[in-house]
Design a protein around this nucleic acid. Structure first.
Length: 434
RNA sequence: GCGACCGUAGCUCAGUUGGUUAGAGCGCUAGAUUGUGAUUCUAGAUGUCGCCGGUUCAAAUCCGGUCGGUCGCCCCA
């Protein structure tokens, strides 16, 4: 608190970089709309109990990463570490159980108390998609396809791979879990310290260990695929077939487990190698038991979340902002006339900056710095003639335009520029994204 | 929670084996033109050298601590 510093793990998004972030959620929102998903939002904090129950007391997020506090009314509250629990709560609280399937898109800040590193912050932002009340495998396919389309539009699908796995239904999963615990318990001596802890909490995690000793033990570990019952096996087959039919490439990754307790059946991740240690860009899965566990009616659920910071680091450059027109009035009468002119242009959707400080040189400098396409110079001489001097900043030319023609002149010009831009698309000089 | 590396101007960085007023580029301000930007030229301003303590005649430089950052482990978006 001593200096004027942001809290560790938080970052300002300054005007220069904001468009990169907005581009991610605007793109996601647009694709979600095409899939028939409605946008919604829930509060950024909830009762601690919601996350504890929803994500599982033993999950890392709940056991060590929650931003929890007590408010003045002695309520235990927590800044949301993920979106799913909040949306499920809203589904139950608002009696939306009659409106299934509920297909929603959301985005906003999440909070986890972790040590910051590349692609990981304490306040970060996610785009999020959830479908409640749709137990069919076709829905898994739809949700994954939606994610792939967003990645495609952001220009990063090609540098991502889709990992897919089935965690089975509860029956298969408990059966497998038991076998797995027996197996690892018999090899305790060879396991790393981390994995001994995982054995207590989430034994399936050991399958994903990077420790060499663990890897050796894993070679002969029982495989979850062998323990799926017929229903779970059929479900997984249907999801894979649907993805193939949609032309979405994937790799089945038996070690893909996911940290949260509520997952069942499909689990998936879009992963990139371009982001250092945090390669997961979008991750999610099916959670058919969650709503019931939270106190709602038995309701299927599936969804995913994508890290906006991570996506923004990889995405194409956002569309360039529209260039302003700068009005440069000299003298009191001209300044008054300029105010009216500015309104007229803005009514016609032209971006207008008024340059009202300093001598003309300074005003033009400022206009140039704002990347103005034109300056409208309005001094005594122009006022007398009822014209403005229209200066084009790109070629330096200047000509007089009557007051009455200014709006038309500038809106026609803007159309021409738009056409130019569209002729030049596909340019991508962003080198730091690999 | 653990580990490694790093803190000098708004930004990117230089600063020799400890030695006198701590530098450059970019940016910023002003002028070369009292009504013309970007290009050019000239001038100017900018710093608690992260902070606290120690060693020394002398510390941006060496030592200890602390705070902050970056990257990695765990885990995740």
């Amino acid at each position: 608190m001593s200096k004027l510093q942001p809290v560790r793990g938080t970052h300002d998004i300054l005007p220069d970089e904001f468009p990169r972030f907005a581009h991610v959620w605007n793109t996601a929102r647009e694709v979600a709309r095409l899939y028939g998903y409605a946008e919604m939002a829930t509060p950024i904090f909830e009762f601690t109990e919601l996350f504890a129950r929803g994500m599982g007391e033993t999950s890392d997020v709940v056991s060590k990463e929650m931003y929890s506090f007590t408010d003045r009314g002695d309520e235990g509250l927590t800044l949301r570490p993920e979106y799913t629990a909040g949306i499920c709560r809203a589904f139950i609280s608002n009696g939306l159980t009659q409106q299934v399937p509920l297909k929603v898109f959301a985005h906003g800040p999440m909070f986890r108390y972790e040590r910051p590193q590349k692609g990981r912050q304490r306040q970060f932002h996610q785009i999020d998609v959830e479908v409640l009340g749709a137990p069919e495998p076709e829905c898994d396919v739809e949700v994954i396809s939606l994610a792939a389309d967003i990645l495609q539009r952001l220009g990063i699908l090609d540098c991502c791979t889709l990992s897919l796995n089935s965690l089975g239904d509860p029956e298969s999963r408990t059966a497998y879990r038991k076998v797995l615990i027996d197996y690892y318990s018999a090899h305790k001596a060879k396991l790393s310290e981390d994995s001994l802890r995982r054995l207590e909490r989430n034994p399936m995690r050991i399958l994903d260990s990077k420790d060499e000793g663990d890897k050796a033990v894993n070679v002969n570990a029982p495989s979850l695929g062998d323990y799926l019952n017929t229903a779970a096996r059929d479900f997984f087959a249907a999801v894979k077939a649907g993805l193939e039919a949609s032309g979405i490439a994937f790799t089945v990754e038996p070690s893909l487990v996911r940290g949260l307790d509520y997952y069942t059946h499909t689990a998936f991740e879009f992963v990139t190698t371009h982001l250092g240690a945090q390669g997961t860009v979008i991750g999610g899965g099916r959670y058919d038991g969650l709503i019931e566990a939270l106190g709602g009616p038995p309701t299927a659920g599936i969804g995913w979340a994508g890290g906006i910071e991570r996506l923004a680091m990889l995405a194409n450059d956002p569309p360039k902002p529209e260039r302003p027109v700068a009005i440069v009035p000299m003298g009191e009468a001209a300044e008054r006339r300029a105010l009216a002119l500015a309104r007229e242009l803005r009514d016609a959707d032209v971006v207008v900056e008024l340059a009202y400080k300093g001598n003309m040189k300074r005003r033009l400098q400022r206009a140039n710095k704002l990347d103005a396409s034109h300056a409208l110079i309005l001094g005594d001489a122009e006022m007398a003639k009822g014209v403005v001097a229209l200066k084009n900043f790109d070629d330096g030319t200047q000509r007089e335009v009557a007051f009455a023609d200014i709006v038309e002149e500038l809106t026609v010009d803007a159309m021409g520029e738009l056409a130019d831009l569209m002729g030049l698309d596909g340019i991508d000089d962003d080198e730091d994204k690999r």
